[in-house]
Amino acid sequence: MNSLSAKEVFYEYRNSFQTVKAVNGISYNFESGRVYAVVGVSGSGKTTFLSLLAGLDIPTEGKIEFDGNATSDIDRDNYRLNHVSVIYQNFNLFYHLTVLENAAYPLYVKKMPKAAAEELAKEKLLKVGITESQFKRLPNMLSGGEQQRVAIARALACGSEIILADEPTGNLDSKNSRNIVEILKNLAHEENRCVIIVTHDPSVAEAADIVLKMEDGAFEDSI
């Protein structure tokens, strides 16, 4: 199984006027089949760390390693397309594409034939509880919980081993939150994926196998 680890990771936001240390020397090894919850106050560097794990940028110092290769040395576009998927609080769906087209989009990018891509996307949508009657709808016609499920289906369709979720329940009511967390837990425990959730929600943190508390850009002792 693929491994994901952080080794002495530092990250600074720089502009002409100031430098802000967002991640301050994190080292950690994430394992497959587990749900990790990263908690901490606003500004503690959770989202920045998640973005580094997603390969959206590279650390200022240290490295994120996937399968023993630093993300700074690999094709990070390919890494995001094939190995890691990110789920955001605001879903980040394509609002002019249907539910089915949204879920199949990464497969179109991978140049999978349209029929096969849509077949796989349908399977993943059904798996997260989206009904067939909703496939042709535009995301705006779905509830927040349903939109988040479409985002998860898109991540699943990619076949990514690593699912990163940034406040996935932030815009949802408690019932929908529970459903989403349940789906993410199943992905880790039944499909052996590594799920890392950044959250403020204690109920989400409680559902995780491992809770990592972040403060000033670094992990405190795991709980």
Partner: peptide, 11 residues
């Protein structure tokens, strides 16, 4: 945001 999402997906 749409383009950023495309980048995030791996385009």
């Amino acid at each position: 945001r749409e383009f950023a999402t495309m980048r995030c997906i791996g385009m």
